[in-house]
């Protein structure tokens, strides 16, 4: 079960980071230099790269829901928060984004914030019909 949880956590992280990366790649390829018009956006939404990104984000959502049924949120939050940093790394490496030191620090602070939240109890009151 432990291995299963770790493999699924890896899938959650990869699907999220790659899904967002493909959305960014597809949307920029379509919209670069073009006048932002509604029809062009619709075309971009249905381009193969964007659709593959959306498919990966659906995988991300389903795998995250499954992971939530197997593991504590306090495990899931810190482990998946690395996605913020990995997204920045993908932007830097493959989209030639110029990331300032300030932005790196900001991204790391967001990850730190998620880590701190994960050290709290996931449920603070009883569940049930209100």
């Amino acid at each position: 079960m432990r291995l299963k949880i770790h493999v699924l956590a890896l899938l959650v992280i990869l699907a999220n980071v790659l899904g967002n990366f493909l959305l960014s790649l597809g949307m920029k390829a379509y919209m670069a230099g073009a006048q932002p018009r509604a029809l062009l956006y619709v075309k971009a939404f249905f381009s193969p790269v964007v659709l593959f990104g959306v498919a990966l984000l659906i995988v991300w959502m389903l795998s995250r829901m499954t992971l939530m049924s197997w593991a504590d949120l306090s495990f899931i939050l810190p482990v998946t928060s690395i996605g913020y940093v990995l997204s920045a790394v993908m932007g830097k490496l493959f989209l030639a984004e110029d990331i300032s030191n300030k932005r790196w620090i900001g991204t790391l602070l967001i990850m730190a914030g998620t880590l701190v939240v994960s050290f709290t109890r996931p449920r603070t009151h009883k569940a049930g019909p209100a």
Binding site: L23, M27, M31, A88, G91, I99
Partner: peptide, 8 residues
Amino acid sequence: LSVADLSF
């Protein structure tokens, strides 16, 4: 994502 960096 069409107007801003992924890292933003």
